[in-house]
Simulated assay, not measured.
Amino acid sequence: MHPHPAFRWEDRPAIRDLVRETGFGALFAATPDGPRVAHVPVVWLDDDTLGFHLARGNGLARHLDGATGLFNLQGPDAYVSPDWYGTGPDEVPTWNYVAVELEGRVSRTDEAGLVAILDAISHEQERRLAPKPEWTLGKVDPAKTAKLLTAIIGFRLDIQAWRGTLKLGQNKPDAARLSAADALETQGRRAMAALMRGAK
């Protein structure tokens, strides 16, 4: 994560909200074959635990139970031109971004835990599609569900370390930061512009 203390993000409820809203990221772990990454949908099982699943054939799946995992989520990001600050020629380009790293112990779930994770992920995503009727695993033929459950493995990440970064130009004068936010808005980078306007 970025070493500048102005960019350190320790607001756990806000981090949880970003993870919930995004619902997807990358899970890294060391294996005997070297470091590996899997791209996974995630859901909060409680305030300090993420649930996710992997295809049984994923090269990382057989190494995760009992391992240390690192979940990484990339939020909005944008290149910032030094011209946008309006503070003179001595500024340099930078990249503003939001990122989260959640580190902890990974454990494999049983089948009931896997079904609970699948149900929670689909519920979290389907509720956003209202008024469409919510899809549930219960709509699938039981024989097909049973086959699906043999092809994937459920996991929990019990988080022991939280690291967040909000690099939004907080180290710049307000006028310079807001000027850059306005420029990003004109470039269509609305999410980053809004975050920069709200930065303190």
Rank of each mutant, 00 (worst) to 15 (best):
V106I: 15
N58T: 04
D65S: 11
W84V: 02
L137P: 00
G59T: 09
A199H: 05
T136V: 12
G34C: 10
K200S: 13
V19R: 01
D77C: 04
D83T: 12
A120V: 06
W95G: 05
I15C: 02
D174N: 09
A181L: 01
D119Q: 10
L118W: 01
T109K: 04
E134L: 13
I159Q: 02
Q160F: 01
P32Y: 08
A161K: 13
D33S: 14
T87P: 00
T150L: 01
K132R: 15
Q170A: 07
A38H: 05
K144I: 12
A130L: 13
D46Y: 11
V115L: 05
R197D: 07
R105G: 03
Y85V: 02
D182N: 13
D11K: 02
I15H: 01
Y97K: 10
L195I: 05
A112C: 00
M196Y: 07
D119M: 05
G66K: 07
Q187M: 11
Y85R: 03
L166T: 06
P13S: 10
R8S: 10
A67Q: 03
V140R: 12
L45M: 13
H39A: 06
T186A: 14
E101Y: 11
L129K: 15
N58D: 15
L64C: 02
A183F: 00
R56L: 10
